[in-house]
Design a protein around this nucleic acid. Structure first.
Length: 446
RNA sequence: GCCCCCAUCGUCUAUCGGUUAGGACAUUAGGUUUUCAUCCUAGUAAGAGGAGUUCGACUCUCCUUGGGGGUGCCA
């Protein structure tokens, strides 16, 4: 039994489309599951677009997703001489011919069978067949002397000794051509598996117009590679039971081409967002803390002198994207925090608010221990004596001390900010509200 | 035009002739008169249409419809 060898063969365009990277994921998983080799071939024959920069983008995307490959990457452009030599040989043996149908000069055409059936077994789509007369001869070398995709792709697969070709649905028709090429060259025919495409809400191929379509964009938007990987895997594959969030190890163990579906799947960003949150919540506390601290520090804030563990405990469960951490947590680390205009208009607008905030501040000042329990009791007492719901006090205080309308429970928040800061903030905000010449800094102005 | 592929809740999917058609996302309600998030509970929601095979069809066959892909110098 020869070893299983699969490959990912993208053309580096400067962006890596999610449909492409999903093919890479399925190939990678198949190799890891079977103990085979996962290879990378850079189809860089388009000299215009295949810049070193574009290749770097491709390699970075793969690294980010943990798609490691087992042999040095192959560059298709380095194999052009061989492609042309094979074409010459096919010509010599009468399996290809020269033609000038378009009047552009002579190109080399590969001769397809004219009668009978063409067939192959697709590992995901089943038995495939076509009448030979429905597949035409095709160009393998252009008029300008450069090899065409079909030729280069097949020869490189032969050279890399690829045994299983796992790629997008859009290549199904090409497969009949490629198989004849393998036969003509005298190479063993690989196994094929065609994955359904990722489409948008209209059922059209998912593109840039539909939102983030490239790996780099998801990375920039704060998605974790593990979440994107897991989500893309679930588009067209399932483990056979109800599990959805899987570890890399589980994916490798459970993966099989037989469980791949054959209908196109729509890209549902909502589910990706949910999954990203799942991964953030599952992140070990230590690792999340590291990420949290680096984001906060990158925003120019210091994490010294605060109850970092307490803040983390409150915020990990609320974090949807790492990139939102600084704006959601700024008030923990500095008194210079912006106010959400909606919060101001909804919670700090009334004439009674300044007095209310000062009253609460005064009551807090009398506390020896400042905890969620003692602050709760103070506010509860105030609400009772005023005969109002606690929310009447809680909401203005929350916006005053954090600038935001959301976050941890108020009393947890107060304890984390600390007595002195809370009191100072309440008085400071009250003073600004009383002074018609002053204004609270809003999100926009900061 | 011709050829090929596909078709279960709004979405991703399970089901491989006999199920109250299951799960997840989203959504609705409740737990929660302190928000947001988490968590828990409950709910709404699906076999495109028509023939046939069969005791019995979401499942097999055919047709229609819809969608996608391909169709000599893109990959």
């Amino acid at each position: 039994m020869s070893e299983i060898r699969v490959r990912f063969a993208p053309s580096p365009t400067g962006n890596v489309h999610i449909g492409n990277i999903r093919a890479a994921i399925f190939n990678w998983l198949y190799a890891r599951h079977t103990g085979g080799k996962f290879l990378l071939r850079v189809e860089d024959t388009d000299r215009e677009r295949s810049t070193p920069e574009a290749i770097r983008t491709l390699l970075e995307a793969m690294k980010w997703l943990g798609l490691d490959y087992d042999e040095p990457e192959m560059y298709q452009s380095h194999n052009t001489a061989r492609h042309l030599a094979v074409a010459e040989d096919l010509l010599r043996r009468g399996l290809a011919y020269k033609d000038d149908k378009g009047g552009k000069g002579e190109c080399v055409i590969f001769r397809m069978p004219k009668e009978g059936k063409l067939e192959y077994h697709d590992l995901v789509k089943g038995d495939m067949h076509k009448k030979a007369k429905d597949v035409q001869d095709f160009v393998i070398v252009r008029t300008d002397g450069t090899p065409v995709f079909h030729l280069a792709n097949v020869i490189d697969d032969i050279d890399q000794r690829v045994t299983h070709i796992i790629r997008g649905d859009d290549h199904v028709e090409n497969t009949f051509k490629h198989i004849e090429l393998f036969k003509a060259i005298g190479a063993p025919i690989p196994q094929y598996a065609h994955l359904p495409m990722i489409v948008n809400n209209q059922g059209k191929p998912y593109s840039k117009r539909d939102g983030a379509a490239f790996v780099g964009e998801f990375r920039e938007q704060g998605y974790l590679p593990e979440a994107l990987f897991n989500f893309l895997l679930l588009l067209g594959w399932n483990p056979g039971d109800d599990r959805e969030v899987l570890t890399r190890q589980e994916m490798i163990e459970l993966f099989s081409l037989e469980k791949c579906g054959s209908s196109a799947s729509r890209f549902d960003i909502k589910k990706l967002q949910w999954m990203n949150g799942e991964y953030i919540r599952q992140t070990p506390r230590e690792e999340f803390t590291k990420e949290f601290v680096s984001r906060v520090q990158a925003a120019g804030l210091s994490v010294g002198g605060v109850n970092l563990d307490g803040i983390i405990e409150q915020m990990q469960v609320r974090t949807k994207f790492y990139r939102d951490i600084p704006s959601n947590c700024r008030y923990f680390f500095t008194d210079d925090y912006p106010f959400d205009p909606k919060g101001v208009s909804k919670r700090l607008q009334g004439d009674e608010v300044p007095a209310l905030l000062e009253e609460v501040a005064d009551a807090f000042a009398g506390l020896d221990t400042f905890t969620q329990v003692t602050t709760h009791d103070v506010v509860a007492g105030k609400a009772a004596s005023k005969q109002v719901n606690m929310g009447v006090l809680i909401h203005p205080v929350r916006v005053a001390v954090s600038g935001l309308m959301e976050g941890p429970g108020l009393f947890e928040m107060l304890e984390l900010i600390g007595k002195d800061r809370v009191i100072a903030r309440l008085r400071h905000v009250a003073a600004i509200l009383r002074d018609p010449a002053k204004q609270l800094p809003t999100l926009e102005t900061v």
